[in-house]
Design a protein around this nucleic acid. Sequence first.
DNA 1: TCTGGGGTCCTAGGACCC
DNA 2: TCTGGGGTCCTAGGACCC
Length: 395
Amino acid sequence: MSRLVMHVDLDAFFAAVEQRDHPEWRGRPLVVGAEPGRRGVVATCSYEARRYGVHSAMPIAKAVRRLPPDTIYVRPRMERYARVSRQIMAVLETISPRVEKVSIDEAYLDVSGLERLVGPPEVIGARTKARIREAVHLTASVGIGPNRLIAKLASDADKPDGLTVVRPDTVNDFLDPMPLTVLRGLGAKTAPRLERLGLETVGDLRRLSLEELRRRLGAQAGMQVHLQARGIADDQVYPASKRKSISKETTFGEDVTDAAVLKDTLRWAAQEVGYLARHEQRKGLVVTLKIRFHPFETHTRSRTLSEPTANDVEIFRTAWELFQAECWTSRPVRLIGVGISGWGEAQPVAQLSLFDERMPEPHPAQARLDATLDAIRDRFGRGTIQRGLNRRPPR
DNA sequence: TCTGGGGTCCTAGGACCC
DNA sequence: TCTGGGGTCCTAGGACCC
């Protein structure tokens, strides 16, 4: 039985929430994002603003130049949007029990088998949109198709307030005229490389052999693009995908050279990361320092600890040591931040109580090491493994 | 024009191991 | 004494996404 995947995408979400909450802003160009006159970008803008060619991720200075003087500029109110998002996700749970939230304003639903209960895909989609509108007074664009890729492209195909259903036998007709950049993995850098070969559409892309694509894009990306061009993609919905890292970073209003400011900022970021990690009951084995110099040169430095941590001081100390190990002082810094990553699936360990019989699973790296050790023991005998195998001495 | 903040995934090279 | 093959882990960078 073939699957049916639905993608739900709220229209201009942040801007729509602001216009909903402030009726006097409706029908006017509105930008949610950085403060005009400062560094930053447009997070989202209303459809009235999009008519001036403004879009997400556009530098705010450029947007200001394009937009009329009566444009409304507001800073994001993330708590507000998160609250509305939770309401929407709750609505989606009434449509199907299999909901995957992919971002604050987007979700995939597995609606396979719902046709017998509800009706054809068009009815499932229309019902979803109606329930969202009733609950939060916002519009969503909905796409339904045989897998995630097609569902996502279908929701993009008719915005705002659209509903597009792509049946399996029309997938190729649907994809063929689309530009290369609709495919996952073909962005601003990679797509032009293929366009230089004279390829413009997904239909064109199918002329390239798998070998050619793998050679040009790498084994993994080449394979993915080859499959996507034929409408083949993941058709599973993953209700509870957990995040794999926690980070905090900030861009300074003006570039910073004062080491004391950098140190204080890093301390703040480490506190934020530690707080979030403890809140989620996670500990990370890897601390990563991120730094961006003038004009826009980004570097990362990371260290794997001997024990996972969620401790502010330890995160800060590690990040600061990573900073000090480089000859970076006196270079103007645009951005600095820190993150942690590397935890096993079975964390949080803290949730285990004396009465809980489950044991935490080892960190994936540890699990792989153990498996390797077992394999080596099988091959070479019990006595071959010493302590410290595969462990490198600290630098 | 001048590029936020939060993420994910992939690649590639070197160290290290049997 | 000199050497390949197969594998993992760690690190840095980069492309990409919302």
